[in-house]
Design a protein around this nucleic acid. Structure first.
Lengths: 202, 202
DNA sequence: CCTATCGCTGATCGATTGATCAGTCAACGC
DNA sequence: GCGTTGACTGATCAATCGATCAGCGATAGG
């Protein structure tokens, strides 16, 4: 009877390592982060990483999978398919924005994963994260909520692009495109404008 | 009389190194790329990198500065301030898209630079690259070309975001958001839709 | 023909990497 | 009390990193 995880002692050191690994990986990327650095941030010794996770690669994978799982659970709860298309899109975009704004480290880790990720996960994981947004926009367009002078799929991409860009400008690099003014745009306002732009004329 | 560059022999080996460095850096990032790997790709020995550029960091900087210079020159030529705002925005977005589509390695290197770049260039360089687009959109909005129900600056961000996302989906990760169909959207069509979306009602 | 110069390379440096090993210590069953 | 188990650490491993050094070979000036 094979057991997927070796022993899993349920110690809090494990969680501390994952937490520290998220912080260091988010700041430095996979190749830039060192196992000693992660261990120090977690307050443990370096061999403990290998003892619990089996290696640096495996630790990276655990961090990434936890982010993916959290995101999927959050979006599943937030998305209400019973809402009318208009409110549904707005709620979904809001949830997407709120999730990542509350987890800047996870957001940056995900940016790394698009470039620096291990070979076999570069596409699948990153793709999986944005797919709910795009799929939901697609659904709204199919329901006739999106203006009909846009080719199928473009509105979905636009919605994802705009929200993603809001995140980029607010989380990743401070003032990367600080042309919107000093304090930037409130999320609610920005999402409202995005939805109105893509909405079919009433 | 100080000379900025040590000797600068104007050999073609130098260009070969820069070219190989762009390819390897684009694929692996700064920390992921090795000087021996770059040297092998350029067909030279590894100490030659240090001889010509003084180190890995300096080589990274040279590659980045060349991309920035090429981009600035290209956009300066492509942007015609005499055009009416509508044609001007379209032409500018087209030029931006064409530049990066013709240089996928430079595009990916620039993605790296946002995360993996050396500390002092992380903001400035990346900011410098998108600023022309945003600034030009801003100008078009000031001229009354952009619909007036958008807060100042948001249209500029939207234009930049949408074009950037077109690039992402086409260059960086194949089929990252392949929801637009099999062959994707033609650039001219996509840009036309974006401009029409943001344009003031006639 | 000699030599100084310059582009360039093989060999090697110390430092740091991720991973491993032997061994300590506390907790627990008997 | 005793032995076993397992989380955990200091010390150390081979491998690789970027950088350096001495020297090769071709070329140009005298």
């Amino acid at each position: 009877m094979p057991e997927l995880r070796p022993t899993f002692p349920q110690g809090d050191a494990r969680n501390a390592i994952v937490e520290a690994a998220l912080a260091v990986f988010a700041a430095e990327g996979f190749h830039g982060a060192g196992t000693r650095q992660i261990a120090q941030a977690a307050g443990v010794s370096q061999p403990l990483l290998n003892h619990h996770f089996g290696g640096k690669e495996a630790l990276w994978r655990v961090v990434g999978e936890q982010i993916t799982a959290d995101f999927m659970a959050f979006m599943t709860d937030a998305v209400d398919l019973a809402l009318p298309p208009g409110d549904g899109v707005t709620a979904m975009l809001r949830a997407y924005l709120a999730f990542w704004k509350a987890r800047p480290l996870s957001f940056r880790f995900n940016l790394w994963r698009r470039l620096d990720g291990l070979q076999d996960e570069r596409v699948s994981r990153s793709e999986q994260m944005t797919r709910p947004v795009v799929a939901f926009m697609q659904r709204a367009q199919d329901a006739g909520f999106i203006r009909n002078d846009l080719p199928p799929g473009l509105a979905a991409i636009m919605g994802g692009a705009l929200v993603q860009f809001l995140l980029d400008s607010q989380l990743e690099i401070r003032a990367a495109l600080a042309v919107t003014g000093d304090e930037g745009l409130a999320d609610e306002d920005a999402i409202g404008h995005i939805v109105r732009l893509l909405r079919a004329p009433s």
